[in-house]
Design a protein around this nucleic acid. Sequence first.
RNA 1: UCCCCGGUAGCUCAGCAGGUAGAGCGAGCGGCUGUUAACCGCUAGGUCCCAGGUUCGAGCCCUGGCCGGGGAGCCA
Length: 459
Amino acid sequence: MEKISVAEARREDAIGREVLLQGWVRTRRDSKGGFSFLEINDGSCLGNIQVVADGTLPNYESEVKRLTTGCSVAVEGVVRASPGREQPTEVYATRVTVYGWADPETYPLQKKRHSYEFLRTIAHLRPRTNSFGAVTRVRNAVCFSIHRFFQEEGFLYIHTPIITASDCEGAGAMFRVTTLDPATQQRLDDAADFFGRRTYLTVSGQLEAEAYACAVGKVYTFGPTFRAENSNTTRHLAEFWMVEPEAAFFDLEDNMNLAERFLKRIFRDVLEQCPEDMEFFNRWVDNTVIETLRQIIESEFVRLTYTEAIEILKKSGETFEFPVEWGRDLQAEHERFLTEKHFRRPVILTDYPRQIKPFYMRLNDDEKTVRAMDVLVPRVGEIIGGSQREERLDVLERRMEEMGLNKQNYWWYIDLRRFGTVPHSGFGLGLERALQFITGMGNIRDVIPFPRTPGSAEF
RNA sequence: UCCCCGGUAGCUCAGCAGGUAGAGCGAGCGGCUGUUAACCGCUAGGUCCCAGGUUCGAGCCCUGGCCGGGGAGCCA
């Protein structure tokens, strides 16, 4: 008797083996022929294993026939070829043990489809559904693929701080971190606080990653980031996961090549590793996701400058709600036009006007634009944002002054240019945005286990 | 934060020109079947989001909240 997963038991090479299966009942169908069918799922794959529980089991009447959706069980039995059409194998049970019951009168999950809105209110139980099981497996595959890609490319995985005193300017509002009690201390005294200064949850590990890139060459961070923006959309979370590679001696060209290789690698891996889950998304969520990913893997990303994009938008003849004008940031509608209508594939925009980008991006010789790059994809919009960093001490300091930043707060960052400075580049990928794109899920709250959004931190 | 839309049974929703609450699914029970979103019958189940107001009478109209969804801005 060996303990195996549902995924293993569903494979034909399991036929004939005596096994132990453990999982949760999805549904039970009785046959008055004196036996029951149990569908068992353990999360190892999308599909269930069909268990045939015969009436001769000692606990058949007392327990097996009382099993309902959500009950947890152990099944010992033999894997056989299934005469049914829906599954290659089934398990003929020699023993069924109940771990825990799930009162059908109060158990919220039924064996029919639920709305995502409802499932969000039971985020602790929604991983037991097909949809969220699939999201969970795809998310895992993507994370693994991210690590594999960077490891193979020679990047070192580094850990940048979660609690930070530095503001990666332009990245949005921050959460304060303090041990002071606002109820008893009317005015929060930074010097008296735990760290002796004002601290926040990180909005980006980029600045710290640059320090390591400027020492060990190629690095990446992959961790949680926090934004206190009061934005309520299908594409924003207050807590999300971000991948941020940073590489010394990389110019923007190298950076774009890395980003393109990176995305293609993730998409290819997910199609390979999670075919069943991807079929599920393609069937029930968005019937274009698989084809879209395949096309992207095959095609080359379009690359053009911000200035060229403005020209295309102006000549498009489209009527936009927001005006298209050089020097203004592109709106969601503009990005969508480029990726969904004009090019119909991912687009990398580069060389944005300096005034709409942060201080650390490298200034071009025209003095008007910076070496920024945004990777835009259909439906989701900006999925990657990055740049070649400003490595020239004098230019960096000048730009900080222009933007009214206090240079003392960035003394260590400036040091990286003062001592042995090198050209370097990096970018950030929002993990959940990538997952939205891959799975077709419409709301970012449904691709992270326990979403944090303004006014909502249950669970 | 702004603009729309919504909140009725466990879930998804319907509800008439304001007249006192319904369906499907789910659940319970029974029937039938190597079944597979099973099928057939019966039964139970509701502070119609909350608080005011108008009215003989409010799920429906008005006011103010709360919650959810979509879009926008900001961004990843």
